[in-house]
Amino acid sequence: MSETPEQSQDTRRRWLLSAPAILTILLFAAGPLIVVLLFSFMERGDYGGVKFGQFSTEGWLSVIYTKDIFDDSLVFADANLAIFWRSLKLSLMTMSGALLVGFPTAYFIATRPAKSRNIWLFLITIPFWTNLLVRTFAIMDLIRNTGHINNILIGIGVIDEPIQMLFTDGAVLFGLIYVYLPLMVLPIYASLEKLDLRLVEAGYDLYANRAQVLRHVILPSCRPGIIAGCILVFIPSIGAYVTPRVLGGGKNMMMGNFIELQFGQGRNWPLGSALSMTLLFIVMILLIVYVRQDGKKGETDGH
């Protein structure tokens, strides 16, 4: 079908009008990603950076393999995989932990009288006003060996020796849950607030006890909020940098720290870029798997 002059003019105008948006996306979203992707396929520079135009798969190889210093043979990089695994494990645990704490919190707020809800929401968001580093150092001050918790426990005679809490995976997990909790509470609250309380009553009326009402009525109704909360917490925690750095010490690295290391002391930009892309793929694959699962569930549920 050929276009009339007016139609083609109209099409051109539409493209022109959407140009700023397309340009913004290209410049600030797609552009940097392409740069990172290109860097991951280049030779590493001697003092950081990359040697432009020199193709190399070294960066990508180093993601999973490491060269033996003596005979240059490739060995599986256990350390890297351990970091991947820790990141994945910690962020899944953060997500679950935040859900366990966040759901009751959101439910509590959603069931308050309409007037006081805003105050509770305000209280939830207050920590966001303080710098993340300051909050993280505050946690550090609480849990270090000569910190408040250990001091109090020793003071009242529960323990003799301070418990090593700082620089453990537990500390990182606690820090991550604390930092990302509002991101879990807010979307769940939004979906719970819309929940028709008569549905809860209908559940009770139809012989469901409290646990059954929660499972069969409340949870399915705020599923979208729970999923949004989980995604919002999972994605930033898998790439978290500050929290594992401060609370995990140098040893308990997560991917964020590992990537930073390559761009800083490691001076291995291609590896850093490849790692960034790997992180991106992990998140993307998980999201795709989830979306497909959810889509299937929606189809079998009815229609």
Binding site: L199, A202, H216, R223
Partner: peptide, 27 residues
């Protein structure tokens, strides 16, 4: 309420939106 052999038809029905008609009736 869940221990009373009494059931209610609510003013705006309060049907479970995430269930089918059959699932609602069988709840």
């Amino acid at each position: 309420p869940f221990k009373r052999p009494i059931n209610t038809v609510f003013q705006n029905y309060a049907l479970f939106p995430h269930m089918t008609v059959s699932e609602n009736i069988g709840f």
